[in-house]
Amino acid sequence: MCFALYSASLAMTKLYKPLLSDLGLTYPQYLVMLVLWDHDGVSVSALREQLHLDYGTLTPLIKRLESQGLLSRRRSADDERQVLIHLTEQGRDLRQKAMGVPPQVASASGCSLDELDDLKNQLTALRQRLHDHLESGAP
């Protein structure tokens, strides 16, 4: 099972690479943009939770996207300890170019949309069970 997950992840990443290079994004950067296209103005901590990334991984991604002019970081007016991530106009415009990526990936999978949805739900449940197990401190 572990090898199947690992090798499927590698194949998926290889599939995404040329699709995302046209957008000027890496796969992790694309994930950040997907969250922001759905919820502009999220906090760094909320972004971290949604993507299951640590700050050491997420911060360089955000800085790189900011240097590309796709997003900006601003302190929250309500709580200055909180940094909010906002899309720039260029970042919002990139969404239109990225709209073709999911259908291409779905097509390449050879799966129906229902099959892909079931697979996603199973993998999400597996990740949660594994996370819960690790959090419990059990071996």
Rank of each mutant, 00 (worst) to 15 (best):
C2H: 15
F3W: 14
F3A: 04
F3R: 15
A4Q: 15
A4H: 13
L5Y: 08
Y6Q: 10
S9V: 13
S9A: 12
S9T: 13
L10Q: 11
A11K: 06
A11W: 11
A11E: 09
A11L: 12
T13R: 12
K14L: 12
K17C: 10
K17Q: 15
P18I: 03
P18W: 01
L19F: 00
L19K: 00
L20F: 02
S21T: 14
S21V: 07
L23K: 04
G24T: 07
L25P: 05
T26I: 02
T26C: 05
T26P: 00
Y27M: 12
Y27A: 12
P28W: 02
Y30H: 08
Y30G: 07
Y30D: 04
L31N: 13
V32G: 00
V32D: 01
V32R: 06
V32P: 07
M33R: 01
M33F: 02
L34I: 11
L34R: 09
L34C: 06
L34K: 14
D38V: 14
D38I: 10
D38Y: 10
H39I: 15
H39S: 13
D40M: 03
G41L: 05
V42L: 13
V42R: 03
S43H: 10
S43D: 03
S43I: 04
V44L: 08
V44S: 05
S45W: 14
A46K: 13
A46T: 15
A46D: 14
L47Q: 06
L47C: 01
E49H: 12
Q50N: 08
Q50C: 05
Q50M: 14
H52A: 06
L53T: 01
L53S: 04
L53N: 01
D54G: 03
D54A: 04
Y55C: 02
L58W: 08
T59C: 08
P60C: 04
P60V: 04
L61W: 08
L61I: 06
I62A: 00
K63S: 15
K63W: 00
K63H: 11
R64W: 08
S67R: 01
S67V: 03
S67H: 10
S67L: 03
Q68G: 04
G69I: 04
L70R: 00
L71Q: 06
L71V: 06
L71C: 02
S72R: 15
S72N: 13
R73V: 11
R74P: 05
S76D: 09
S76L: 08
A77M: 10
A77T: 11
A77K: 13
D79N: 09
D79A: 09
D79T: 06
D79S: 10
E80T: 10
E80G: 11
R81V: 08
R81K: 14
Q82K: 15
Q82I: 14
V83F: 07
V83I: 13
I85F: 00
H86G: 03
H86L: 09
L87Y: 01
T88Q: 02
T88H: 03
E89P: 15
E89L: 14
